[in-house]
Design a binder for these strands. Structure first.
Length: 169
DNA sequence: TGCGCGATTCTC
DNA sequence: AGAATCGCGCAT
């Protein structure tokens, strides 16, 4: 079953945890469909999260994070890698979950490379070209490891928030 | 108009 | 440990 936008219209931490074990699916430019189980996520949420791009307010770049739940947010980092996020919560509230890793592929940049995800998907809704499926009966009952987010040491008191989630093993 | 830096990854 | 590489946010 494809997840619908109502799945994302919830607390960002809940979405980050509950995306673990779901299947990320992508229709490649060639038409071929590939997928992998999501194993690692991070939450970026609210007006007080200094690690979030949206902390500095609504800008051309962060506008997507204020949009409808289930919207795709892709940004370019370090001038060379793309990162995939899914917008959560409600309109006008900045929130997204970063997909940091899938089965066999670690790191947000490598996930985007593998799934051929770039900024052309930014602002689009999940559904046609990129979607999440929840039908993995064998992927359940796993343990979730919680830790601090990666690469946000600049974020003051927000850097120690335990908003990173990954499947153990 | 210019500058510093980043939710990273790969190589030396 | 250092490079690669560019758009964004803020200062000028």
């Amino acid at each position: 079953m494809k997840l619908k936008s109502d799945f994302f219209a919830k607390n960002t931490l809940w979405v980050a945890k509950n995306l673990l074990g779901k299947r990320l699916c992508r229709k490649l430019r060639s038409g071929k469909i590939i997928s992998a189980i999501i194993t690692e996520t991070e939450a970026y949420q609210g007006f007080n999260d200094k690690a979030s791009h949206a902390h500095k307010g609504r800008t051309k770049r962060t506008e997507v994070m204020f949009g409808e739940p289930g919207t795709i947010y892709v940004y370019l980092i370090y001038g060379m890698h793309c990162c995939l996020n899914l917008v959560c919560e409600k309109m006008d509230y900045p929130a997204a979950v970063l997909i940091r890793g899938v089965e066999g592929i670690n790191g947000p940049g490598r996930v985007c490379k593998h799934f051929q995800i770039d900024k052309k998907l930014n602002g689009k809704k999940i559904g046609g070209e990129l979607w999440i499926e929840d039908k993995n009966k064998k992927v359940s009952g796993f343990m979730i490891h919680v830790s601090r987010r990666v690469g946000v040491d600049y974020a003051g008191e927000s850097k120690d928030l335990l908003w990173r989630f990954m499947i153990k093993n």
